[in-house]
Amino acid sequence: MTTTAHASVAQAEIGRIEDAEGYIASICFKTGPPASLGVEIEHLVHVADHPSRPLGAAALTALLPSRPLGPGGQVTLAVPPQPDLERLHEAGHAALDRLDLDVTRSGLRLAGFGIDPHRAPRRVLSSPRYRAMAAAFARRGGDGRTLMYSAAGLRPLLPAGPAKELPARWAAVHELGPILLALFANSPVHAGRDTGWASTRMRAWYGIDPARAGALPTGPDPAAAWARYAVRAPLLCVRRPGASWNVPAGVTFADWIGGALSRRPTFDDLDYHLRTLFPLVRPGGHLEVRYLDAQPGGDWFAPVAVLSALVSDPATVEAARDLAAPTVGRWVEAARYGLTDASIAAGVLPVADLALRVLERDGLPGPLVEEVQGAIESRFRRANML
């Protein structure tokens, strides 16, 4: 499609819900080769010698002028997709080293946690989107504010794989979630207080409207399921001239198609709407896993490698799903208790062992396998499992 033709489609109005669903289903998964792996590494930033000191937008953008920032001042590092784990490790560590150097030179420090251990939620950056997001989240309480201003995540971007393998792969990434969330939970302290949750970040996640941020249905047709979910999800905002992008509570994209707002949505509006949905796994060509806490330093690689290994081929997917079956759906227990939940902990060891065996089988260099194993073992030691 030419650039002109693409622009024409983007600006075309959507007249039927079926048209929106068909469009979403056609773009949400890029199946087949070439496969690539990516990762988005998000970090909270503190003043090095005074981590509880608030950071203002002007100061933070002056100190890190070339870095994309979130509403709470989070720094996001998007590592370009790579053809394999070894090259992703190299690219990710090089990018993180450069970020760490920029941050250190500015008198700052990367926090390395999934929630701010020192500061209460506080807005740093403002924009029409962020203001609309804050207004929408506030309707359900303060959890959305915590996520916007105090949380940081690690987001592996996994290939969708061949079309015939997608349903099992999609299901596996969800079914393994409680085990991997518990294994890599890294946000027990928020604003100076032990919260009693292994992943306080995920505790806040549960306070967001599940129509925007819940677990998606799994089944034989993930694309159709995502399309139905997305079209019936509430609008976060509508882009328009001026400072306010707010929308009335409860208006869904389907309602917008039906005439609920002053104009009909376009396919460009639909593309933007998809980027305002935050399910635990979001399809965007790849599988964007959103349930993992930010990790300290180079520890980001271990959860990415484990997930990649567990969905690497149909036999491994089947084995991983069998191992995860007893903990399917136990998201809250995983976030609250982490590896101290006996039933979840019982599933972690065999799942981790399977991942390590697959990484060795598939030729990941020994030092990188040892790095992953060391990161896993450190989690076990913390939970007194070794």
Rank of each mutant, 00 (worst) to 15 (best):
T200P: 02
A191Q: 10
N186S: 12
D194A: 13
P162A: 13
G161Q: 05
R169I: 09
R212P: 07
A213L: 04
P167L: 11
W197Y: 13
A136I: 02
Y149P: 06
W205C: 04
D143V: 02
T146H: 13
V173M: 05
L147M: 15
M148H: 03
A198D: 06
S187M: 05
W170C: 08
A211R: 15
P167W: 05
V189W: 08
M148P: 08
S150C: 01
P162T: 00
I208S: 03
E175D: 15
K164Y: 05
K164E: 15
P210F: 09
R145T: 13
R193Y: 08
A151M: 03
E165S: 13
W170G: 01
R201S: 04
M202N: 11
G196A: 07
N186E: 12
L166A: 05
Y206F: 14
R139D: 03
A171E: 13
L183D: 10
P178L: 08
R145Q: 14
T200I: 01
M133P: 00
W170T: 07
F184M: 09
D143N: 13
A204P: 01
V173Y: 02
A204H: 08
L147R: 05
A152H: 00
G141W: 09
G196S: 09
A191P: 07
R139T: 12
G161H: 10
G177P: 07
A211M: 02
E165P: 04
A168I: 01
M202Y: 15
G192A: 12
R140E: 13
R193N: 07
A182S: 13
A191D: 11
R139Y: 06
R193T: 14
A182H: 09
S199M: 10
D209R: 01
E165G: 11
S199G: 12
L176N: 01
Y149S: 10
L166V: 08
R169H: 08
R201D: 00
P178F: 06
P162H: 04
F184D: 10
L181C: 11
D143P: 01
F184C: 08
Y206T: 14
L180H: 05
H190D: 09
R131L: 15
P159D: 02
V173H: 06
A134R: 14
A138F: 04
P178W: 12
